[in-house]
Amino acid sequence: MSTQTAVNSNSPAGKLYECVRNHGIDFFVSVPCSLLGEVIEILEVDKDVTYTPVTREEEGIGILAGAYLAGRRPAIVMQNSGYGNIVNAICSLTNYYNIPIVMLVSHRGSAGERIEAQVPMGDAVKGVMEASGVKCVSVEHPAELDRVDEGIDWALKNEKSIAFLLPFSFWKDDDNYVPEHR
């Protein structure tokens, strides 16, 4: 794969990234997911942000908390399964100290999933987020990116974390998409 990948601002990943950057989010960590490949490629080449991959999502929340304490606006890019690895850090670090983390979360186990084992955590993730005090917003198509705009504004203003769940339908960018929220 080329390391010279240009940002395709018309792709779902490019549109999402532009939307997040427009809010001044300037410090990112990531853990890979096949759905997030293009977002991670953009992060690897964008010299205007601070970025590192991390070994596990929980470590990433620690790094992002430190970045916020030093005046930056942090975000994590991860799969929904990773939320299971960060619940204690969210409750006892970022919620406790009012540190807002923006989470761009690919939603495995959503409609279109082919791997059965992804479904249980895919079904559980919204409830686990809500139970651990993180607002959860599903964005099912790039046409709904206004939800990301509103959500980031809310999170930064109130110093609360917010997760955007991005299912298969978001990444497919189907022209015939009809909003249909479960």
């Binding site: 410090f27 470590e59 929340i61 620690g62 992002l64 430190g66 970045a67 304490l69 409750c91 670090l93």
Partner: peptide
């Protein structure tokens, strides 16, 4: 001094984030 009251294990990571940010 930033005192951690929770999140055992993350002192090195919080410090790394502060260092990367400034």
């Amino acid at each position: 001094n930033f005192y951690m009251f929770g999140s055992m294990g993350l002192s090195s990571s919080i410090g790394l984030g502060v260092a990367m940010a400034q």
